[in-house]
Amino acid sequence: MAILLEYLFNGALLGVIYALVAVGFTLFFGVLDVIKFSHGDVLTLGAYSGLAAFVSLELLGLDLPVVSLIFVLVVAMLVTGLAGIAIGQFFVVPMRGSPAFNILLMTLMIGTAIHECIRLFVPGGANPKAFPTLLPRTPIEIGGAYIRLDSLLLLVLGIGVIVVTNWMVRHTKLGLAIRAVAQDGDTAQIMGIPFRRVVLATFALGSMLAGVAGVMNGLYYSEINFNVGVLLGVIGFSSAVVGGLGSIWGAIIGGFSFAALQTVWVLFFPEMSGYRDVFAFTTIIVLMTIWPTGIIAERYSERV
């Protein structure tokens, strides 16, 4: 029972990270009908800029855990947000109208360029890097299970960010504009919504989520490496697709489902845990064969 609870908890934390990435994919797809595959590597970029922020704080001799954490998060979000805007402005928006495959491949290559830059130009970038411990690791006992306090805080942070994002999309003026563009870009433009600005704002918003996810991933595993984004990107994309591209709730459900698949596999076949991704991806492929447009999209296709 206690072990089950621990598995459940770790699965939930993974789910939150995946959901953060998936929501980004869903937002981009909503406004522009494109898959921006550099998303996973933007996440890596976020993690590394967070690390850089921490290192520079250390060099300045500042050692205030809470402030460091906030500073790391802010820097990561700033960098990823700007990267999102730049990719959107210079590559994705001008390619509107090209075949979907071209945009997909191009953003994949942009992602490759980003993580290759990290590997080549960050000192020691080719090897995994230790990520600082910014949260207290005190174990807490809940019903016989021991859960690390930092993990609990991360879970709360992730859920909080998702809730805030959902609220923004639903209740702010920007969110309204995003939803309008998602419904029908051309009409929204005629109605006076600055299309390009909304698209870029969406790219910034989605990429900032990736920044948060990157830092969370680093804090959780206490380690980052240049390659982490590729797999996380594919997982996030799978989650968004399985949930139903274009729906925020779909992305969240998809993210948690993917984590659940991995967790279930490890739970039942602990000695074959190496196959957990094989199992998860196979299930995704099967799910997509059954529901080609995702679980949510067909029933109540509320886009973004």
Binding site: S238, Y275, M288, T289
Partner: peptide, 25 residues
Amino acid sequence: LPVLRTKGHYAALITIAFVLLFRSF
């Protein structure tokens, strides 16, 4: 079957998932 049932982005995802799956396998 999955590639046929799905279009564009989805088919792309299936082949991407397959290449990662193949490697981990």
